[in-house]
Design a binder for these strands. Structure first.
Length: 921
RNA sequence: GGGCUGUUAGCUCAGUUGGUUAGAGCGCUUCCUUGACAUGGAAGAGGUCACAGGUUCGAGUCCUGUACAGCCCACCA
């Protein structure tokens, strides 16, 4: 055998680095715009600039890369736009933490200097994840890489905000928002993650004014009582009719507050009496509005009690809670504390319990946007895969609430709003504000809140104004807030392509084809992108949304840094290779992925298998091989045709799987074809040819088929395993002359289309029979305890079918090669003698004679068991066939099938029964 | 409280419109270092498809209910 200088183990490291650099440098990732062709575009879900690649990214980007590479091979102009998100709160937190280590705060630095520091941090650390995406093999067009804080994308953000304002879809108002006392910023409803916690209901007595009596009410947050401005009952509640028009005394502060009646109060909860704290609870805020209650904010932005909290001033909210409960106990106004599980909002970034907090924020009116998005869905313009996510999307849109978009941090897009200090106070024009909970039932009441005048010295502008357009004053102050990070993300599918400029990219590549993402950000991102696309581009940003599973650790937990259960994809790439990582993920990715390190061995073993199959093929080529069109060769044997057919069917199946986002099935098909069909059968079979005394033409044919199948396999595997497929394809290119190798890379080779449709059916059938015989003989060998090197002296195969006779006759030499048999005879009627055992197939029986008593005994048992099994199955079929309902209702082909099956099994049964007799002799 | 998903081999999971004897990987048993590969090869064992009903000639697959698990949504203080 020719010397082979390839190592027996695949070395992923060297290969991966080499090819990725070559691809990127050669510009293969950059499509050329061809107006005669329909492009295929994907925008990446931009990872956070603070992020490092985790398994979720690996899964998400592997799927995108598969789609991208597949389409590129189908010669669509294919664009994958990469980029990174500035991740306002997360990034600011990271940099602030770093400053804290140096003993500094952002306030010491000042805004300008701080933002400079963040940019510096970004330059130094922000490219970590894009480097890691390269290691994964992601074939993004890096020449179009974007960052949400790029000048052009910032311009898009500003354009979007101002446009929405012009359309009356942006407003500013005083509302209860979710406030994170740790991050010191407002959060949108989506950013306040509700988590079930084991809290408590505190029952407290409020004395009734002018009476020795009191009312008892229940609350989960006693500290907010400092801001109570009323107590409420349900007007229909019989029990409390006597409280009508009364006043109660707020304990601790001794404030006199009224008893109000409101339908909101649920008589069945707690005592049926509610304390009303308009500044610290959204419902109370609404009630306060309805009853024109005063609003007392008792907290500072850091969650400590402020000067309105009397003696509790300066205490943290939870400390204040303890002290208040204690003081109430002392005053005998505390009744009881009852455990009470309830959902409480937590900051999605730092997990601090958010405080419902009254403040002035900017909102986007979502209902008009959502209506467009719903309409687009009804018209089938955007489809979710799997379909069940549609419902999640629709129900969120139907119940949408306004979006609080201002954040009290520094890192982000500063809101393009200025306040004229001169105009301020001169309320020019009043206009009722549409409330945050417009979609909820309380909306009509909220609308009667004190209105904020829209032109009350507020300037919303595309460019930085030099003077107030109303009064000409230069005394302007810019709104210090920045926009929610998602306010730039939702523009991503078109801002990355140049919007608001009408660039060539935007015209050609928008809308994109598919969005690949995880379930967690359907609301945050997917739905909002659809709304933005429709609002600003008048077209959905993508036609398909593929929602893949969540990556979890074995055992079901989410993979997270804090749990310390991370499996780092880069470590897996280092150890086993990116291809192994990618392929393993795809094999597992049907639903949520539960990972353990061992699971990646599947992919690693597969890469090694591919590698070694290649070593075998290459070492069996003699010199430089010329590959003519295999399909035209008339020297193809049945096995050649069989493997070509299998290859065809696999290509077709993988294609279908990609079309339907069924990546695990596609990976399975590729795996099974390459390993079982190509390696286990075809390679083993052709060894007989390559090493035997076959005619040189036969050898050359086999070599051609080997190369042909291997080359096409590399194309099929390329989307899954870009690196090894390229490496092997290039190795073949060095040794083989063929049209396809005029190309530079397998990346640009065409996606295999079936070439042998409706052909080779007969050959496929006879190979199946041949495989039966080989497996049968091997089974017998194992049962007889033969050593691999030992030859079975005499195998007799009985068959009455002409096809089987022909097939076995044709493959005799291969059978003896694969199953180690010295003599094979095919007979119509095998003369059975005692001491023979056999295996029975539909058309074929295999016999071997001359066995030991122990072997015979074991085989007798086995035969008996087999007979019982067959009898059971046949009985079942007979029952069915004698059932008049079945016969009259089932389709004819099913009945025919059953008949044929019965006959088949009956024949087998007879054969086994005869065999059983052999043991009795 | 509402919604969604899952429950199939020891483990992790496939199973597209209902139709042969339900598949894969890992693990397990036996054998094999044979000239591509022990990250390998050959043969094999292992499943009343959570439970109870229903529709149907026929159900892992469709319907209803139950149990368990997980996820998402939700302002009952």
């Amino acid at each position: 055998m020719a010397a082979n200088d390839l190592p027996p183990r695949y070395d992923s490291k060297a290969v991966e680095k080499k090819w990725y650099e070559k691809w990127e440098k050669s510009g293969y990732f950059t499509p050329s715009i061809d107006s005669s062709k329909k492009p295929f575009t994907i925008v990446i879900p931009p990872p956070n600039v603070t992020g490092i690649l985790h398994m979720g990214h690996a899964l998400n980007n592997t799927i995108q890369d598969i789609l991208i590479r597949w389409h590129r091979m189908k010669s669509d102009p294919t664009l994958w736009v990469p980029g990174v998100d500035h991740a306002g709160i997360a990034t600011q937190n990271v940099v602030e933490k770093k400053l804290a280590k140096e003993g500094k705060t952002r306030h010491q630095l000042g805004r300008e200097k701080f933002i400079e520091t963040v940019w510096k941090w970004k330059e130094e650390h922000g490219s970590a994840i894009v480097k890691q995406l390269r290691r994964l093999g992601a074939s993004c067009d890096w020449s179009r890489e974007r960052f949400t804080m790029d000048e052009k994308l910032s311009r898009a953000v500003r354009e979007a905000f101002v446009t929405l304002h012009e359309r009356g879809l942006v407003y500013r108002g005083d509302y209860i928002i979710n406030w994170c006392p740790r991050c010191q910023t407002a959060l949108s409803d989506e950013e306040a993650v509700h988590q079930e916690i084991e809290g408590a209901l505190y029952y407290i007595k409020y004395p009734i004014e002018g009476s020795k009596d009191h009312v008892t009410l229940a609350t989960t947050r006693p500290e907010t009582m400092l801001g109570d401005t009323a107590v409420a009952i349900n007007p229909k509640d019989e029990r409390y009719q006597n409280l009508r028009g009364k006043k109660v005394i707020l304990p601790l502060l001794n404030r006199v507050i009224p008893v109000i009646e409101d339908d909101f109060v649920d008589p069945d909860f707690g005592t049926g009496i509610v304390k009303v704290t308009p500044a610290h609870d959204p419902n109370d805020f609404a009630m306060g509005a309805r009853h024109k209650l005063s609003i007392i904010n008792v907290m500072n932005s850091d969650g400590t009690i402020n000067e309105h909290g009397g003696p509790y001033k300066g205490l943290d909210r939870f400390e204040a809670r303890k002290r208040i409960v204690h003081d109430l106990e002392t005053q005998r106004l505390f009744v009881k504390r009852v455990s009470h599980g309830h959902a409480v909002g937590h900051c999605y970034r730092c997990h601090t319990i958010v405080e419902p907090y009254l403040s002035k924020q900017w909102f986007v009116k979502m209902k008009p946007l959502a209506e467009k998005a719903l309409k687009a869905h009804r018209e089938g313009k955007v489809k979710f895969y799997p379909d069940r996510w549609t419902k999640v999307y629709v129900s969120w849109l139907e119940n949408i609430r306004d979006w609080c978009v201002s954040r009290q941090i520094w890192w982000g897009h500063q809101i393009p709003v200025w306040y004229c200090e001169t105009c301020k106070g001169q309320r020019v024009e009043r206009e009722p504000v549409i409330a945050r909970s417009e979609a909820t039932k309380q909306s009509s009441e909220i609308a009667s809140l004190p209105a904020v005048a829209r032109n009350d010295g507020i300037i919303v502008s595309r460019t930085n104004p030099a003077a107030c357009p109303v009064c000409g004053s230069k005394n302007l102050r810019r709104d210090p807030d920045v926009l929610d990070t998602w306010f730039s993300s939702w523009l991503w599918p078109f801002s990355t392509l140049g919007w608001p400029e009408q660039t060539q990219d935007l015209k050609y590549f928008y809308p994109t084809a598919v969005l690949v993402t995880a379930q967690e950000i359907i609301f945050f991102w997917v739905a909002r992108m659809i709304m933005a696309g429709l609002e600003f581009m008048n077209e959905v940003p993508f036609h398909s949304v593929f929602i893949h599973g969540t990556v979890r650790v074995e055992g079901g937990q989410k993979m997270s840094k804090s749990l310390g259960n991370i499996i780092d994809p880069i470590e897996i790439i280092d150890e086993m290779g990116a291809d192994a990582l990618r392929f393993s993920l795809m094999m597992l990715a049907a639903t949520d992925v539960y990972l353990s390190r061992e699971k990646f061995e599947m992919g690693r073993n597969f890469t090694n298998k591919i590698w070694n199959a290649t070593r075998f093929v290459l070492s069996n080529l003699e010199g430089f091989c010329e590959l003519s069109d295999v399909g035209k060769l008339d020297r193809l044997s049945a096995v050649d045709k069989w493997i070509l057919k299998e290859l065809d069917q696999t290509a077709e199946e993988i294609n279908k799987c990609f079309e339907n986002f069924r990546f695990n099935e596609g990976a399975n098909a590729a795996y099974h074809f390459f390993w079982s069909s190509f390696c286990d059968w075809y390679l083993e079979l052709v060894k007989a040819v390559l090493m035997g005394q076959e005619a040189p033409e036969r050898k050359r044919t086999v070599q051609a088929v080997l190369v042909y199948v291997l080359e096409k396999s590399m194309r099929l595997l390329h989307p899954f395993m870009p690196f090894i497929s390229e490496e092997i394809w290039q190795l073949l290119k060095e040794r083989v002359k063929s049209g396809v190798f005029n190309l530079e890379t397998v990346m640009l080779a065409s996606w295999p289309a079936p070439g042998f449709k409706d052909k080779f059916e007969k050959e496929v059938q006879s190979i199946r029979m041949f495989q039966d015989v080989v497996v049968g003989i091997r089974d017998l060998r194992t049962r007889l305890g033969l050593k691999p090197a030992e030859m079975l002296p005499d195998i007799r195969i009985g068959t009455k079918s002409k096809e089987a006779t022909d097939a076995i006759g044709e493959f005799k030499s291969q059978i003896s090669f694969l199953a180690k048999v010295s003599k094979i005879s095919v007979e119509k009627e095998v003369k059975k003698t005692s001491g023979m055992i056999g295996r029975v197939y539909s058309d074929i029986e295999i016999f071997v004679a001359g066995l030991s008593p122990e072997n015979l005994k074991a085989e007798e048992e086995r035969t008996k068991k087999k007979i019982e099994e067959l009898e059971g199955v046949i009985r079942g079929i007979e029952n069915r066939l004698s059932d008049s309902k079945f016969v009259s209702n089932a389709p004819r082909e099913i009945i025919e099938k059953e008949h044929a099956r019965k006959q088949d099994l009956a024949q087998k049964l007879t054969a086994y029964r005869e065999n059983l007799n052999l043991f009795k002799q």
